[in-house]
Amino acid sequence: MLKVSLYRYNPEVDQEPYMQDVELDTGGKDLMVLDVLELLKAKDPSLTYRRSCREGVCGSDGMNINGKNGLACITPISEALKNGKGGNTLVLRPLPGLPVIRDLIIDMSLFYKQYEKIKPYLINNTPAPAIERLQSPEERAKLDGLYECILCACCSTACPSFWWNPDRFIGPSGLLQAYRFLADSRDTATEQRLSELDDPFSVFRCHGIQNCVNVCPKGLNPTRAIGHIRNMLLNRAS
C-alpha cells in the first residue's frame, strides 16, 4: 500500500486547506504520480487537479511533489520519494507562491501575465519573403533549450524572487521566452525588447538561486538565459 498525503481545499466547504492521508494499492507497480491521482480520483471524484497529455509536453500537471516542483505525469513514485520530504509517503501539494483555487489547482494568471509582458511573439516588420525567412542551422541552434518551454510554471513557482514579486519580476519561465525571441535571427525588435526589460524588477530580481534549473522538467536552464539577457543589456548600454 502506498501512503499518499494530499493537499485538499474546496473554497465552498473548507475554512482552510488541510492535508488528507489516503492509501492506495498500486499493485507493486512504480506508477507515475499522475496515475496515482487518477486512481484516487476514480474513488473520490472531488479530488481536483489539472491534466491533459500525460506525457510531459502540455505542462498541465505541475505540482509540488514531496517538496520539489515537477510534472506528475513523468514523475514515477520511486523518484518522487527520493525528493526527500515525506519519507515513504507521497506528498502532493499545489505549486507554491500563487493562490490556490482548489486542491492542487493554482491560479496562474500572474504567471501568464508575466509571459504576455515579454511580447512572446516574433516581431519583424520587414516584408516577408514568398518562402520562409532563411535561417542557418547555427542560428536555429540558438533557440534550442529555449523554445521547448511548456509553461508548466514549475520554475517560476520555485523561485523566491517570483514569490515576492510575481507582479513585477518576469520570472524564469517568462525570461527564458524573452531570450528565445531575443536570440531568434528572424526577430528585429531586439532594441525594443531590451529597453522594456531594463528596469530594476523584470530581469534584475534574479539573484541566481537556480531553483528554476533544478526543477525544470524539460531540463532547460532559465538562469543561463537570464545571464544572456543581462549581457545583451550590458552590451547595449556600454
Binding site: 516574433l122 520562409e132 535561417q135 536555429r140 523554445y147 531568434d184 528572424r186
Partner: peptide, 11 residues
C-alpha cells in the same frame, strides 16, 4: 515560419 515557428533547418 513568418509567425516565428522554430523549424529545424537545412544547410
Amino acid at each position: 515560419d513568418h509567425m516565428g515557428l522554430p523549424f529545424s533547418r537545412t544547410e
